[in-house]
Design a protein around this nucleic acid. Structure first.
Lengths: 110, 110
DNA sequence: AATGTTTATCGTAATATTGCGATAAATAAA
DNA sequence: TTTATTTATCGCAATATTACGATAAACATT
């Protein structure tokens, strides 16, 4: 096997899993950190910021894009990346809902 | 290769990546959902709730436990699982910080 | 002691991820 | 047009993940 059985779970569970997987790698978090830090669309200087080969970073960018967390526009011979506000917000909402649902119990068996 | 270069990234980036990876699967989200829903420590009826084999669920539980998101106590011949409040809170804090850092830009190039 | 119940682990197979060099594709600059 | 610059993709190797049957381990029940 090795393939996740997505059809057995709810839409929300699958969505959250997909978004979480997108940030489940330090390099992709570093990319998002940088996108947030520079506070503007960046045109491909991520390669100089991270200790990874260009091909590897391009792949990570692709995964972030597939998950919808970032988007990119062509700008000359460079590409301009920035955070996708909508997906970002949805991600935040789903997580907030999850965290809100949990209330620490006073009487815990473990 | 195939192994992530954790040493090149910050402690926080690696921590967040590890926690995100723990919830980067619908089955593990379903487990957390259930743990939250029943609002008490559960003693192993997760197997009946999910459409997965017992061995598979045990493996997912182990991953959640390794990430620190849940903990389990032996209780007779069953095991009692519940959410680990501390890690759960830390996860929430790291994510909140990430989301707080981002402010949607009015002038976006993409 | 023998049997059942519950959870963990082992072994295995299928698939996914990570990383990078090489190369292609597209535009800019000369 | 030729040459750089920038990003994407291909192909490959190494490793990780997912899933499950079989089995072990631990305790409860009889």
């Amino acid at each position: 096997m090795g393939a996740t059985k997505t059809d057995h779970f709810t839409e929300r569970q699958n969505q959250l899993a997909t978004l979480a997987k997108a940030i489940a790698h330090p390099a992709r978090i570093a990319i998002l950190d940088y996108l947030i830090k520079v506070d503007s669309c960046i045109c491909g200087d991520i390669v100089n910021e991270l200790p990874l080969a260009q091909a590897t970073i391009s792949q990570h960018l692709k995964e972030l894009k597939n998950a919808g967390l970032i988007k990119g526009d062509i700008e000359g011979n460079a590409i301009c990346y920035c955070i996708d506000e909508n997906t970002w917000k949805r991600f935040q909402d789903i997580l907030n809902a999850l965290f809100d649902d949990y209330t620490p119990k006073t009487q815990s068996c473990c």
